[in-house]
Computed example of a mutant assay.
Amino acid sequence: MSNLGGYQMIVTFVKGVGGPKKAGMMAIGAATALYAAGVASGPAVKDRIDILKEKFKSRSMRNEGQVRTFVVRTGACDDNGLKFEVDDQFLVLECDDDSVLIELLGSNSNPHIVSGLFLANISAYPAVDLGSEA
């Protein structure tokens, strides 16, 4: 199979714009315009990337993004049937609003998603005030 179809399209286009010199100038003009648009939008794109980075940083743990271990003070069972016994330990891996991704140490069925308010009731996990966010 040959590439004559693509070649024919290019030749037809070049003839349609008035020859190879005009087609070359159009290509250079288009490349220059794209470059200028990229340079002009660069700072805005960088700012947007910085905003997204900050947004994802704020989604991670509220204590400067560090993974922290908490000890269960009160035994309880969450809405999904996950049992917490006194002195169990869990790692907070990620949180978003009231949803907290944890690893229950000693459990083979990790990770778990648990309510932050539930964790605050059974441990020293800092509670989230969902009413103040809007």
Rank of each mutant, 00 (worst) to 15 (best):
Q8Y: 10
M9L: 14
T12G: 10
T12V: 04
T12C: 06
F13Y: 11
V14D: 07
K15E: 10
K15T: 08
G18N: 07
G19I: 09
P20Y: 15
P20N: 13
K21Q: 14
K21E: 15
K22S: 02
K22W: 04
K22R: 14
A23D: 02
M25D: 10
M26S: 10
A27Y: 11
A27W: 10
I28C: 11
I28E: 08
A31N: 09
A31P: 02
T32W: 05
T32F: 06
T32E: 06
A33K: 01
L34C: 09
L34K: 09
A36E: 09
V39G: 04
V39N: 02
S41W: 06
S41Y: 05
G42S: 07
G42E: 02
P43L: 00
A44N: 07
V45R: 06
V45I: 07
K46W: 00
K46M: 03
K46F: 05
D47A: 12
R48I: 07
I49T: 11
D50V: 05
D50A: 15
D50L: 13
D50M: 12
I51A: 07
L52R: 06
K53S: 12
K53E: 12
E54V: 01
F56V: 12
K57D: 15
S58A: 12
R59C: 07
S60K: 15
R62D: 11
R62T: 12
N63T: 13
N63K: 15
N63Q: 14
E64K: 13
E64Q: 15
G65S: 13
Q66F: 06
T69Y: 01
T69L: 02
F70I: 00
V72P: 04
R73A: 08
R73H: 07
R73W: 03
R73Q: 08
T74Q: 04
G75A: 08
G75K: 00
G75E: 00
A76P: 00
C77A: 11
D78G: 02
D79V: 14
L82S: 11
K83G: 00
K83I: 10
F84S: 01
D87F: 03
D87L: 09
D87N: 12
Q89K: 15
F90I: 01
F90G: 06
L91S: 09
L93W: 07
L93E: 11
C95F: 00
C95A: 14
D97P: 00
D97H: 04
D97Q: 03
D97T: 06
S99F: 02
S99M: 04
V100N: 00
I102Y: 05
E103W: 04
E103H: 02
L104C: 01
L105Y: 03
L105G: 04
L105A: 01
G106E: 02
G106M: 09
S107K: 14
S107Q: 05
S107F: 10
N108V: 11
S109D: 15
H112C: 07
I113W: 07
I113P: 07
V114R: 09
V114F: 04
S115M: 13
S115K: 14
G116P: 12
L117Y: 07
F118I: 12
A120F: 01
N121Q: 08
I122K: 05
A124R: 06
Y125I: 10
Y125W: 05
P126N: 03
V128F: 15
V128T: 13
V128H: 11
L130N: 14
L130W: 03
S132L: 11
E133C: 03
E133R: 12
